[in-house]
């Protein structure tokens, strides 16, 4: 087994169907990434993605879940009761999807958690490709990456207000030009 415990800032890890998810202290994500690259051999960071968990589990879900083989008709939620998803401790997760270019294509997801107003150290110096990925997440999700050399909006216009992928950003919230009567 990979010794995830040796990764700087290690909090916990969970094996998934496609790759393990390793939770890292936010302040040490840069060191963790460096460790993953140099010691564990993850050559490439393919993706940086932030998720907003505002309102997660606000309303429970019910109904049949899963596939024919794994479906349990006696499970409480299939009887009309609602089931709440696992509670998240903070509002945003930032996931780094890593890939090692060798036999078996090992992958890993380093994940750190932040609340509104908290910052994440930038990993551009570890993987230059994270430049645009971090800018995109800043632009659309409002995550601030400390130490990023050029943290500006990437996809939205420079003067855009708000961060569209947040859960509290309304759909249809774009102001329509020339629509106010003056």
């Amino acid at each position: 087994m990979t010794e995830w415990g040796r990764v700087p800032g290690y909090v916990s890890h969970r094996d998934g169907p496609e790759m393990p998810t390793v939770t890292i202290e936010t302040a040490q994500i840069r060191e963790a990434c460096e460790h993953a690259r140099d010691q564990l051999g993850f050559d490439m960071c393919v993706d940086v993605v932030a998720t907003d968990y505002l309102g997660w589990g606000g309303k429970g879900v019910s109904g049949y879940i899963g596939t024919a083989s794994g479906r349990d008709l006696m499970h409480p939620m299939t009887q009309g009761l609602q089931v709440l998803p696992e509670i998240k401790t903070k509002r945003f997760s930032v996931s780094y999807h890593l890939l090692a270019l060798r036999q078996g294509a090992p992958r890993a997801r380093l994940q750190c958690w932040v609340d509104e107003g908290e910052h994440v150290p930038s990993v551009v110096e570890v993987w230059p490709t994270c430049d645009w990925h971090e800018r995109e997440q800043y632009d659309l999700m409002g995550i601030v990456f400390d130490g990023h050399p050029n943290l500006e909006r990437l996809l939205m216009p420079e003067d855009w207000e708000g961060h569209p992928l947040r859960k509290d950003y309304p759909i249809g919230g774009e102001p329509v030009r020339f629509s106010d009567e003056q």
Binding site: E18, T21, V46, D47, T51, Y53, W56
Partner: peptide
Amino acid sequence: PEGEIYVAIESPRGESGCYLVSDGGPKPWR
């Protein structure tokens, strides 16, 4: 079912990936 997943394939342009978070409901959370 609730969970998060990242699936990657070789598209004509390279690694095309889909990161999906589900809260157990009928729509993707992220």
